[in-house]
Amino acid sequence: MFEKYRNFSAEDFATDDFFREWVFAKRSDANIFWTKWVKEHPEKREEVIQAIMLLKILQSEENELSPAEIGNAIERTLHKIGKNNPGRISRTPPAYQKWFRYAAAALILVLIGWAGSKNSWNRANDPAGLAIRPGEDWLTYENTGQGERQVTLEDGSRAVLDPESSIRVRRQWHGERLVVLLGGAFFDVVKNPDRPFKVLTENVVTQVLGTSFKVATDPVTRQTKVRVVTGKVEVSARNKPLPGPNTILYPNQEIVYSQDDEVMQKAVVEHPVEVRKSEQREFVYEGVPIGQIFDELEKRYAVKIRYDRETLADCQITASFSNESFWEILSLVCRPVRATAEEKDGEIFIRSSGCRF
């Protein structure tokens, strides 16, 4: 039965009952199946994302385009669809033909930036929910290209949008600085302790005073990842408060929040970058205590490295490093003393029996 999905197009997915039950979270078994299926069929990811966007658009209860604009846009778009894909729409089940013709037009309008030019975000694809209220004056910035797009906000903060991503901000900020994000973006925030900067996604709220960080939500897995480059941020779940305090992230740390499991996992980023950069590019150590290297790594990368100083007191090492990454240096330092480095909750733990042989 499920083999048919291998040949599905975006419109085929959008008209499939089981697929729609997953998108609108009506059945837990649909969520389990589709999350696994998309991971096993990465070649269909683009069609799946387009179908999700399509359904979100159709879920809208209102549209800011006038009826005349909608009609003209649909006619032009349907003509283009028919010209480039003869017979494509006719394969859609009859009950959905009219429905899909209008849906396909709406999808293409979004992809080419029409909706962005009209500030036509709606409640259906607004992850902030009540954060965007009718009558308020909002600006929408979309990236419909294949590369990144940089946007300078009212206060001088920068947002670098990933492809197929959007942000929405109030035309004038009063009090807190609120950004609603669909997709992924890197933020470089101007410091202002009196005006917190918040980024809202469907799953989490990220609040900072002044820092640089990346937020991204995967539309398929529904996982949100927050990664900090400089400063610190506070991350909390939007819909359900998690037990314990909110998660605080520091440079080179990230969290991954899974909406399905309602679990927030904290970790060291895959590629830590130097926070305290030095003009010195080669680091030479001759017979120095191994703890000294751990301490210097911690300062350079702002990643907490925990080890037993007494156990490693007799361990010395001679080595030099130049272009090695954080993880490579850590591995090379641990190897001679038969130590291991374990990452847990955004920190590094060194395990060793010491050097008293």
Rank of each mutant, 00 (worst) to 15 (best):
S157H: 08
F100C: 01
S120F: 01
A128H: 12
P94C: 05
I74R: 06
A104Y: 00
R88Q: 10
D126P: 01
A105N: 06
A159Y: 06
R149P: 02
I132V: 13
D155P: 03
L107T: 08
S66M: 01
Y96H: 13
R149K: 15
I108Q: 12
G82I: 14
L130G: 07
P94Y: 00
K80N: 11
A106C: 12
D126N: 15
A105I: 03
K80Y: 02
R91P: 01
L130M: 08
E148L: 14
E148H: 09
R158K: 15
N122L: 05
F100V: 07
N122E: 05
P67R: 00
R76I: 01
P127A: 15
A128Y: 14
R158W: 07
Q150E: 10
S117P: 05
G71R: 11
S120M: 07
P163V: 14
G156C: 06
D155W: 01
E64H: 11
E69T: 10
E75S: 06
I89Y: 12
K80F: 04
S157N: 02
D155M: 04
I132C: 09
I70H: 13
A159M: 05
A95R: 13
T144A: 07
N143V: 12
L139N: 09
A103D: 04
L107I: 05
A103L: 02
G82Y: 11
A105W: 04
W138Q: 03
N119M: 06
V151Y: 12
S157E: 00
E69R: 10
S157M: 03
P94H: 04
E142H: 12
N72H: 15
Y102Q: 00
V110R: 09
L107Q: 04
A95K: 15
A159I: 08
Y96N: 09
N85Y: 15
L161F: 08
R88E: 08
R91I: 06
T152F: 02
P93G: 03
I108H: 11
L153A: 08
R76M: 05
L65F: 08
W121Y: 13
Y96S: 10
L153V: 10
L78I: 13
S117T: 09
E142R: 15
R101I: 08
R88F: 07
R76G: 07
S90A: 12
I70G: 10
V160L: 08
A131D: 07
Y96A: 04
L78T: 05
R123A: 13
L78K: 00
P94Q: 05
P134F: 07
